[in-house]
Design a binder for these strands. Structure first.
Lengths: 269, 269
DNA sequence: CGCGGTGTTGAAAATTGTCAATAATTGTGG
DNA sequence: CCACAATTATTGACAATTTTCAACACCGCG
C-alpha cells in the first residue's frame, strides 16, 4: 500500500503554489502530521493509531464524501484538495458550514445520532484518509495520548464553530468578508503556503452562504476592499496587500449592540 | 453527602412551574439522568462514572461558573437553574453563545487548549454537578458505554452549534425569534414542563445577542407576534398560542439566497 | 419615592437584499 | 482549437429589513 500514486487525474487541475499533488502514505511520513490526528503522538502510538486507518479515498470535484443521512462510520482527514460541508435547511435552501483543506479533519457531525447531518462535497479533486471511527475508538483504548486527542479535536471543532457564531452574530458584512479572507490566509500560512497570495476554491455564493450574506454583497465588498487598496482581486485570485487593514476592519466594524449582557459577574465564594 | 439541602437561598426566587428546588444527589436517583451524562449507562457503569463526580457547586445569579481564560478542569451538568455562555469579542463587545437549563452540560469549550474560551454565568441561582474531566476520562477507560458517551455529547454540542449557524446564516430576524421561542419551548417540554407557557430567564438583550439582532428588533418582533395572535407576552412571561404559526415562520421566512452551491454531487464510484 | 436596569415604541439613517442586465469565465462537444 | 452553453461574477437601481438614536414607561428595590 505504500508509495502508491494516482497516475491518472481525471480532471487536470492547476496546482496551488507549493502544494504537491503526490503524497506519502503513512502518517509518520506525512507532511501534515503535526496538524492532523497524529499530532502529539509518539511514533509507536502513531503506529497503533494508524492501523485503524484502512483506506484512502479520492473524491472528484463535485462529488460527495458523504451525504446527510448517511451512516456515520468514519471521520476523514483531508490529504489533498478542498472540501466544503453544507446543510440543507428545512426551507429547501442550503447553507455552507465551513471549508476543509489539507490537514483538516471532517465528519464529526453525526457522532451523536449515528447519521451524518450535513453533506461534504469536494470543491476540487481531493484525497482523504478514511479513519473508521470504531477502529479509532479501539485504538484509543490502548493509547492514552490518542484517547486524549479525540476529545481535543472535537473541542477544536466546537471552538471553530463558536468563532463562526461570533462572526455571524456580531459582524457586519464587510467585517465578515475580512474575517473570511484572514481565516483562509492564516490557514494556508500554517500549511507553509503564502499568506498573502492564494486562489479561492469556492464561488462567491459559497462564501456568501458561509457568511450569511448574498453573492452580490460579497462581490461588492471585495470590490470595495480592492478600491481601498487592501487587497487585489482577479476572479478567484486574491492578493492581500494590507493585512492590518483587514484586521482592523474585523475589530472595529462589529455592530455595536448595547448592553449585550449586564452581568455583575461576582466572584463565586 | 446524600440528601443535603441548601437551606438558605440568598435570593428568594419564584420557582418555575413544576420545577422543584430540592434535589436528589446521586445520578441514579436524579430525575435528569435520561438527558444527562449517564444516559445509556447501566447502573453499575453509572456508579463507576459517578465516582468522578466529586462536588456540587452553587452559583448565585450573576455569578460566573467560570471565566474565559480559566483552566479547563471540569465539565458541568446543570441540576437546577439557568445559565448562559458568553464570549467577549475582540471589539470589546460580548456575544451570547447559548443558554443552559437543567440537564444540560456545559464547559466543553477549552477542551482543545486547556483554557476556557467563554464565560458561563448564572441567570438565576443555579446548582451544577462538577465533573472533573480527568476523573471522567479515567472512569471512561474502564467503562465502554461511558467512553462512547463523551464523544457523543461533544457531537451533540457540535450539532447544536451547527443549528445556530444555520439560524444566523439564513434567517431573518422574525424567523430567528420564532426559532428561539420554539427552541425554549421544546427544551422545556422535554423536561416535563409546559411547552406553551413559560418564563424567560434572560433579557431581551441576551436574546438579541444570541440571535445577532438588536434589543429593539427583538422587542418589535415579539410585539408583532403578539399582535398576530401567535403568542401572548407579558414582560418575560410567554404564552405560545399558535405553535404552528411560529413553525411556519421559521420554515418560510428564510432569506432566499440564490444558487447557494451548485453541486453536481455525483455519486462517488 | 427615586433610581438603575429593562422593555417598548417612533422616526430617520444605514445596511443589506432583491431584481435585472451584462460581462467574464469555465466547461463541453464538435 | 474553436464556438457555444452554462455557470459565475460584477454592477446599478430600488426595496426591504434592520439598526441607530431618542424618548418614555415599567418594575423591583433600597
Amino acid at each position: 500500500m505504500n508509495c502508491e500514486a494516482y497516475a491518472v487525474r481525471q480532471r487536470p487541475m492547476r496546482v496551488q503554489r507549493g502544494q504537491s499533488t503526490d503524497f506519502e502514505v503513512t502518517c509518520a511520513r506525512c507532511s501534515l502530521k503535526s496538524k492532523c490526528l497524529p499530532a502529539a503522538l509518539t511514533p509507536a502510538e502513531l503506529d497503533a493509531a494508524e492501523r485503524s486507518v484502512l483506506t484512502r479515498r479520492r473524491i472528484g470535484r463535485g462529488e460527495a464524501l458523504y451525504r446527510a443521512g448517511d451512516a456515520f462510520e468514519s471521520i476523514y482527514a483531508v490529504r489533498v484538495g478542498f472540501l466544503t460541508s453544507i446543510v440543507n435547511t428545512s426551507g429547501g435552501h442550503t447553507q455552507v458550514l465551513g471549508f476543509q483543506m489539507a490537514g483538516d479533519l471532517v465528519g464529526f457531525d453525526g457522532l451523536d445520532t449515528g447519521l451524518h447531518t450535513c453533506d461534504v462535497v469536494a470543491l476540487e479533486d481531493s484525497d482523504v484518509c478514511v479513519i473508521p471511527y470504531r477502529g479509532l475508538a479501539e485504538a484509543a483504548t490502548a493509547t492514552p495520548a490518542l484517547r486524549a486527542r479525540i476529545p481535543q479535536l472535537l473541542g477544536q471543532e466546537i471552538e471553530r464553530e463558536q468563532a463562526m457564531l461570533q462572526i455571524l452574530g456580531t459582524m457586519r458584512s464587510d467585517a465578515r468578508v475580512a474575517s473570511f479572507l484572514l481565516d483562509i490566509s492564516r490557514r494556508l500560512g500554517t500549511r507553509g503556503l503564502s499568506r498573502s497570495e492564494f486562489v479561492l476554491k469556492m464561488t462567491r455564493g459559497d462564501i456568501g452562504s458561509l457568511l450569511g450574506i448574498t453573492i452580490e454583497t460579497v462581490s461588492r465588498i471585495m470590490t470595495r476592499f480592492a478600491r481601498l487598496g487592501h487587497i487585489h482581486i482577479d476572479g478567484r485570485n486574491v492578493h492581500i496587500l494590507d493585512l492590518d487593514a483587514l484586521t482592523r476592519m474585523v475589530a472595529s466594524r462589529a455592530t455595536a449592540r448595547r448592553a449585550p449582557l449586564t452581568v455583575v459577574v461576582k466572584q463565586a465564594a
